Amino acid sequence: MAAQRLTFKEMCAKFDVTPRTLRYYEYIELLKPDREGRARFYGPRDSARMKLILRGRKFGFSLEDIRQWLLIYEKEGTDVQMKAWIELADGQLEELAEQRKQLDQAMLELQRLRDDTAKALKS
């Protein structure tokens, strides 16, 4: 049984990305679809890589950081690569914690302003 391949359009739909995004990921060599003429076909490897790319973006990593992540994922990484990845992840976790703190503060302030406005309306 042949491995399932997705067309360009199917890949965009499956991962809810724009054609421009998918082409860009190919251009910077994060994805390497099979080409048959002008058609592109994405196999299980590309789907797995796309999941990791989107997960990395969700965590706030740059595409270059994601490239390093993919190298480790594919080649099981050297100790040096894995240690570098841990440092990178630690830095991103700190950044996300700071963003959470700022968001919590903004939400508290907005809630106070909202409550003050609601009180003013009742008066």
Rank of each mutant, 00 (worst) to 15 (best):
A2D: 15
A2Q: 15
A3V: 13
Q4N: 12
L6Q: 07
L6M: 12
L6C: 10
F8I: 06
E10I: 02
C12L: 07
A13Q: 08
K14I: 09
K14T: 12
K14A: 14
F15Y: 15
D16H: 12
T18Y: 04
P19N: 03
L22V: 00
L22C: 00
R23S: 01
R23Y: 02
Y25S: 03
I28W: 01
I28P: 07
L30E: 09
L31D: 08
K32M: 11
D34R: 06
D34S: 09
R35V: 03
F41R: 05
Y42I: 02
Y42T: 01
Y42G: 04
G43D: 09
P44W: 04
R45W: 09
D46T: 01
S47L: 15
S47C: 15
S47T: 10
R49P: 13
M50A: 07
I53D: 01
L54M: 11
G56S: 00
R57C: 03
R57D: 00
R57P: 00
K58T: 12
K58I: 01
G60F: 05
G60T: 02
F61W: 02
L63T: 04
E64V: 05
D65G: 01
I66M: 01
I66G: 04
W69L: 11
W69Q: 10
L70E: 05
L70T: 02
L70R: 06
I72R: 11
E76G: 06
E76C: 14
G77D: 00
T78C: 09
T78L: 06
D79A: 13
V80I: 14
V80K: 15
V80S: 11
M82F: 12
K83V: 13
A89L: 12
A89Y: 07
D90R: 07
G91L: 06
G91W: 00
L93M: 15
E95Q: 12
L96H: 02
A97Y: 05
E98Q: 09
E98N: 11
R100I: 09
K101R: 13
L103D: 01
D104Y: 03
Q105G: 10
M107K: 06
M107I: 12
L108G: 14
Q111E: 10
Q111T: 14
L113P: 08
R114T: 10
T117A: 11
A120L: 10
L121Q: 04
S123M: 05
